[in-house]
Nucleic acid binder design. Structure first.
Lengths: 229, 229
DNA sequence: GAGTGGTCTAGACCACTGT
DNA sequence: CAGTGGTCTAGACCACTCC
């Protein structure tokens, strides 16, 4: 199988440090020529390489060498940017949207909200080392955070929680899966529609079974490794 | 984009119950004809559909409709077959291999073993509803289970642990990721080389920091959803 | 042995990116 | 505007599965 040979050849170049994290690979046509094959076969090799987390693709921009994965413990940590800091990675977030909505079923179920509850939702784009790597959604029940309903601006949800609630919360409930990107996520992350994202749900529930935060992180799978201790 | 239209059309058939879990889809050539396209484009649609966990492929056998995912809590449960029982799914395991080996670095690190420790390793194939869905590896330090070294046969590791150790273990340490199948795994699972598998590491460490089990489950990603409470 | 999926060729056109 | 990736066509041959 030619595509496996090509995949391994490129993987070796990366492991030997010939291609540094973040760098762009030569264009598909150049690589196809170099391996005396067609673009279809070459793309097959790159797609498999991407599954292994060694390279990633940005829509219409090309293929890039992945950084080493960040190890993240979603049962104890809400703030993924803190992990970036630990790894000395540059990072940035951008507010995509914030709004007050009727709690969707998934949110209401997770946070044990009564019917017709409103939640405030923030969605943010997470950018690490200049790469758009994840979308983060935070849902806060309006009943517990009445002041939020009147705020349009970005706020630091995690600090807010720490002040008000987090001390009473022994640990987070976590759900992890792998699901394809929605249209919207593909657009903001610059990835092809339907690519696979790692899906991390973290919910903070107090001892009275009241949920005060659901955070959903949808992240390119080569970026994060999950470890729960 | 034609392939997205095809993907959605097939997804709709599944959601409407026209295609039942476990059933085989028509052949690629038939489907390509039905959508007036080429096999390449049709395969692209199916590949994306597979990412979303709605269908899966068996090597050279065809495409099948996925079952609903099992929800599994790896922080509290070692035995995935118990979960099958809960969901009323038929299941079976087959011993692939059992041997005594020098602990690989990953195992020694996880279980805090001294250099040159031996471990006993069992690998098993997990079959649910007739489908080969996962490979399970169990590593037990020989020092803690001296009787195992002389045994060739299959044993129920989980029962053994429960008897000897598990009562002292408050919870398991878990690591989750997404990694491609190795050659060997592809072969036993009947999936294409390099397809994506969900990777679940569970380690049982006692209060003296002695590790007495590392279990690694490598599972088709449409089969399991992970939930940690 | 017929049919299937796995792999590959050799092109093509379009929309978009980067300069 | 040149070059890139995204998508698609219309074939082909092989190895394997299933009957």
């Amino acid at each position: 199988m030619q595509y496996l040979i090509i995949k391994n050849a490129i993987a070796e170049q990366i492991e030997n440090g010939m291609l540094e994290p973040g760098h762009k690979l030569p264009s598909e046509r150049v690589l196809a020529d170099a391996f005396s094959t067609t673009r279809i076969t070459l793309r097959e090799a790159l797609n498999y390489l991407a599954l292994s987390g060694k390279v990633y693709k940005e829509e219409r921009r090309g293929w890039f060498v992945s950084q080493e994965a960040l190890i993240f413990n979603p049962a104890q940590e809400l703030d993924i940017l803190k992990v970036c800091k630990k790894y000395n990675r540059s990072y940035k977030t951008e507010l995509i949207d914030s709004k007050r909505i009727l709690a969707p079923k998934m949110v209401a179920d997770t946070l044990n909200l009564p019917p017709f509850s409103y939640v405030v939702m923030y969605s943010r784009l997470i950018i690490i080392e200049g790469r758009k790597v994840a979308v983060q959604y935070q849902y806060l029940p309006e009943a517990l955070f009445p002041s939020l309903a009147t705020m349009d601006n970005d706020i630091d949800v995690i600090s807010l929680l720490k002040e008000q609630y987090l001390l009473h919360c022994p640990s987070l409930r976590v759900k992890v899966g792998v699901f394809p990107a929605t249209e919207g996520e593909s657009a903001v992350l610059n990835i092809s529609s339907g690519s696979m994202l790692m899906d991390i749900h973290q919910s903070a529930i107090n001892n009275n079974k009241k949920g005060y935060l659901l955070q959903v992180i949808r992240c390119c799978h080569d970026v994060i490794e999950i470890e729960i201790k």
